[in-house]
């Protein structure tokens, strides 16, 4: 698995891909907009006015619908890919993924408890709902991450098999609880729950966006600072310690960071699987496992792939819309099988 291309070429290619995905996400849909109008409408959102032509419709569509949705996709894709890298580094296994080991479903369970519990108490006030949901999803994700990590460890070694099996059990448990809530829920709550389980960028609003953007910035700022420590951790925990890194603290930080990132992503867009698994893998195939390159490159690739998957979800059955979680699973699950068959 020697690097196939130079990091610089990869970053250029990924930036172009991201630009393409951004353009598609803003311009394409039930009403397609010309590139010029899209750009001008986007710039007007930032308070810059170029040219005087009337752009009311484009401005409305981009400003109210597509821009929040695009930003949501950008943040969700970036943070899921980053958390995927963090998980794979923490477990020192390229098959670890927030979805496979139950972090996403734990977060979804947290969100479901908030939704159904909130409805039982007469609804959560609009103003705090996004923050409360994020918090509950974060706590759910943190609980499951910590539990999987504890279960997967014996005598200072992390057993991948135990970890994956524990993930299966915790996934099943979380889904059973979510199923229970679904059974108990009324019609309105049911719709929200279904949305959470399948994942969707539909109905993005700036209010739901802020907590996620905040978390994404924090994760994107913090994780690359640990790139060298993550590289050393891949050698093994004691090896990393012998190289002078504070491994226990690093592991706690990684668990916290993943729970925070996945929790915020799930709270904002529901469960979107396989981005955290597939993206770091693809990037590793291209430039090797060095986290100093892997982390930023995965962030760019994750954001681009999620926007493209969302575009597919919007366009395939237009004017109806597929939940994006279905799209990523349809692409991601066969890819996961392919990775398994490659005989690691």
């Amino acid at each position: 698995m020697n690097p196939a291309i130079r990091p610089r070429s990869l970053f250029i290619a990924l930036s172009l891909l991201l630009a393409l995905a951004l353009w598609g996400s803003l311009a394409l849909g039930p009403v397609s907009l010309p590139l010029g109008d899209t750009l001008q409408a986007a710039l007007r959102l930032l308070g810059l006015t170029l040219g005087g032509s009337e752009l009311n419709q484009a401005q409305l569509i981009v400003g109210q619908i597509r821009m929040p949705r695009t930003l949501l996709g950008l943040a969700v894709g970036a943070v899921l890919a980053l958390c995927g890298v963090a998980m794979q580094g923490l477990f020192r296994n390229p098959l670890a993924d927030p979805g496979l080991i139950g972090v996403s479903s734990g977060a979804a369970l947290g969100a479901a408890i908030a939704i159904v519990g909130g409805a039982a108490f007469g609804g959560i006030p609009e103003a705090i709902a996004p923050y409360l949901l994020s918090l509950c999803a974060f706590v759910g994700g943190l609980g499951v991450t910590a539990l999987v990590y504890r279960l997967g460890r014996r005598d200072g070694q992390t057993s991948v098999v135990t970890m994956l099996l524990a993930g299966i059990a915790l996934n099943a448990l979380a889904f059973a609880c979510i199923g229970l809530f679904t059974y108990l829920a009324d019609d309105a709550t049911l719709r929200t729950l279904t949305f959470w389980n399948l994942g969707s960028l539909n109905g993005a609003s700036y209010a739901r966006l802020w907590p996620l953007l905040l978390v994404t910035f924090a994760v994107a700022f913090w994780l690359p600072r640990r790139a060298r420590a993550l590289n050393a951790l891949l050698l093994g925990e004691s090896e990393a310690r012998h190289l002078g890194f504070e491994v226990e603290r690093l592991k706690r930080e990684l668990v916290f960071c993943t729970a925070l990132g996945v929790g915020a992503a799930v709270a904002a867009a529901g469960m979107i699987g396989f981005i955290g698994l597939v993206v770091p893998h693809l990037v590793r195939l291209l430039v090797g496992p060095d986290h100093r390159i892997l982390l930023p490159a995965s962030m760019l690739a994750g954001a681009s792939l999620l926007l493209l998957a969302d575009l597919a979800a919007r366009l395939v059955l237009a004017p109806a819309e597929l939940p994006i979680g279905i799209v990523t699973a349809l692409i991601g699950a066969p890819f996961f099988l392919y990775l398994l068959m490659r005989g690691r």
Binding site: P94, N231, L235, G236, L243, G288, D290, R344
Partner: peptide, 26 residues
């Protein structure tokens, strides 16, 4: 103080010189 353990569990495809370069991390 440097330590060579009995066996290593590295399962990522670093190049040989990258593995050795990790010794320079401190």
């Amino acid at each position: 103080l440097a330590v060579l353990p009995q066996s290593s569990t590295l399962s990522f495809g670093f190049r040989v010189e990258d593995v050795v370069a990790m010794g320079r991390l401190p």
